[in-house]
Amino acid sequence: MQFFFEVLIGGLLSGIMYSLVALGFVLIYKASGVFNFAQGAMVYLAALSVVGCMEKGAPLWLALILAFAVMTLFGIATEKFVLRKLVNQPPIALFMATIGLAFFVEGLAPMVFGSDPRALDLGIVDEPIESILESAGMVISKFDLVAAGVAAVLVTSLALFFQYTRIGRALRAVADDHQAALSIGIPLQHIWAIVWGVAGFVALVAGMLWGARNGVQFALTFTALKALPVLILGGFTSVPGAIVGGLIIGASEKLAEIYIPPVMQSLFGGNFGGIEGWFPYVLALLFLLVRPEGLFGERHIDRV
């Protein structure tokens, strides 16, 4: 039973890391109804900007500020050169634009900062907490706990921002209907630039944590793949949904990886395993059949 809880807690903490990436998707979807295919590329760009600046001699705090500036500029440029032309176009056109953006960033970022995988040291060691290991015999990573704390602060801040600020309310209005928001004087262009900037900040936080965990390299773009089932479960428009979805996906994929292969082997023979790559998608698919809007997503009703 102790092993079960160890896997469960490890999975929940991994899920938090997925949530951090999913949050970026949610922000942009909430403000523009666009599924931002480039979110993984933004995580890569943000992390690469930090290590790129550090290699030029900047201390970590300055590198973070510079990287945030890069992400903000990226957000403003995306609004000006990509999204502005596509206002009131079908969502699929905006989605296709973000696919182009993803490939552009994935090509440009390594050209500017280099493609070598690099280490990122945030000063948090990814080692088990000794006291828990000794008392409960369970491995709980210091790094994962810090990541969970960061995610909690980020979610709380974003939830408050959306709920209680004028910009937050404007963001929600824009998400509901671009044209209606424009007609009552909400500056759509500013709102989009702000939300892409905030999504860039979220990408920076995710990039820092994923980069410190696995190294800063092209594979950071793959983190987006882990966020998709999280979004389906949590809902594309819910910040808390991204967290809850992440927890469910993280825990279930780890438990599945441990407990399903032995059952499959006893039934069919051979060697099973490596199922955590597809298991979250199957879970999300099943969930879609039951609750297409996700756990916390808004139910969409069209009048005929």
């Binding site: 092993f3 491995v139 594979a219 990886e257």
Partner: peptide, 30 residues
């Protein structure tokens, strides 16, 4: 480990449980 292998928490907990003498590791990339 499923591609790309950027998440191996479950596998290494299993290794911890198995307590092997050695791990032969055929990885790639991340």
């Amino acid at each position: 480990v499923a591609h790309p292998g950027n998440e191996q928490g479950a596998q290494w907990l299993k290794i911890r449980q198995e307590k092997p003498d050695y791990v032969i590791f055929y990885g790639w990339g991340v």
